[in-house]
């Protein structure tokens, strides 16, 4: 890694209070890792291992209990305004505003970034076209299928040209065929826009397809295995990594697309 890290976790704990009698629940404990600028990292782990908490810490939606989280050298929670227009997120469900058309949903981030109306409409229109939704600009979310809605949410995240792109199991709610198609398009877009990408998933296949580095988590969020891979990684090597991940997790994650 020659460039300065885009994301740094330094001995991060995140605990949530339970009842007065019980001890706090640690979702993340002493987690340290770094992601280089432009790197694509998949975070893999079983349900409840703290992946989403880690995601929310990077997104600045929650504050760490102790330790330090830095994104592009800044604190994503305390320096809330600094990150305006710098982080794009694709959530597990599309999270479209039902009262906005597809075009206006894509333009939301641009609108909040104070981009002029004409410009943001043009950008949103181009992204919808790029994702195969030309002709659906005026449609409200209720009139779109699940796959189309998720495409709108991907367009919304990319439209602001984010430096950091986060995906929280963005394809897990889709059928296998749509999920696979969108996943490939998504990886192409991330490479094309050269942003730093972090993707949360509980599917080994998805992690190997999305990430150039795979971090495997176990509860409370800590790294128990990691591997690097690239487009040229031989099939045998991928299979070995897959087998290692399975071994590390003891078969607690999905090994193929869920229906």
């Amino acid at each position: 890694m020659s460039e300065a890290p885009a994301i740094v976790f330094d001995a991060v704990d995140k605990r949530f209070p339970r009842s007065e009698a019980a001890e706090d629940f640690y979702a993340v404990r002493a987690l340290s890792f770094a992601v280089a600028a432009g790197e694509l990292v998949a975070i893999l782990g079983p349900t409840g291992c703290g992946k989403s908490t880690t995601f929310n810490l990077i997104a600045g939606l929650i504050r760490p209990s102790s330790g330090r989280v830095r994104v592009a050298g800044h604190d994503p929670y305390d320096e809330f305004d600094w990150f305006r227009g710098k982080i794009g997120i694709v959530f597990q469900n599309d999270r479209l505003m039902p009262w906005r058309s597809a075009l206006d949903n894509v333009a939301l981030g641009l609108e909040l970034n104070k981009v002029a109306r004409e410009e943001r409409v043009a950008i949103a229109r181009a992204w919808l076209e790029r994702l195969g939704l030309k002709g659906h600009e005026a449609d409200y979310p209720f009139a779109l299928s699940g796959g189309m809605r998720q495409r709108v949410s991907i367009a919304r995240a990319f439209a602001i040209k984010p430096a950091i792109l986060l995906g929280d199991e963005p394809f897990s709610g889709l059928d296998a065929v749509t999920g696979d198609t969108l996943r490939r398009e998504f990886v192409d877009l991330v490479r094309e826009t050269r942003c730093t990408g972090i993707f949360i998933t509980h599917s080994i296949d998805e992690a190997l397809q999305l990430g150039r580095r795979v971090l495997v988590f176990r509860r409370p969020a800590r790294i128990i295995y990691q591997a690097r891979l690239g487009p040229d990684t031989p099939a045998a090597e991928r299979e070995r990594i897959r087998s290692d991940i399975l071994h590390a997790l003891g078969g607690t994650v999905a090994t193929k697309e869920e229906p």
Binding site: A59, L61, F80, D81, F83, R84, G85, I87, I89, F91, R95, M97, L108, G109, L112, N113, I160
Partner: peptide
Amino acid sequence: LLEMTLSFR
């Protein structure tokens, strides 16, 4: 939706 909107600061 609140989380999504907040993510755009």
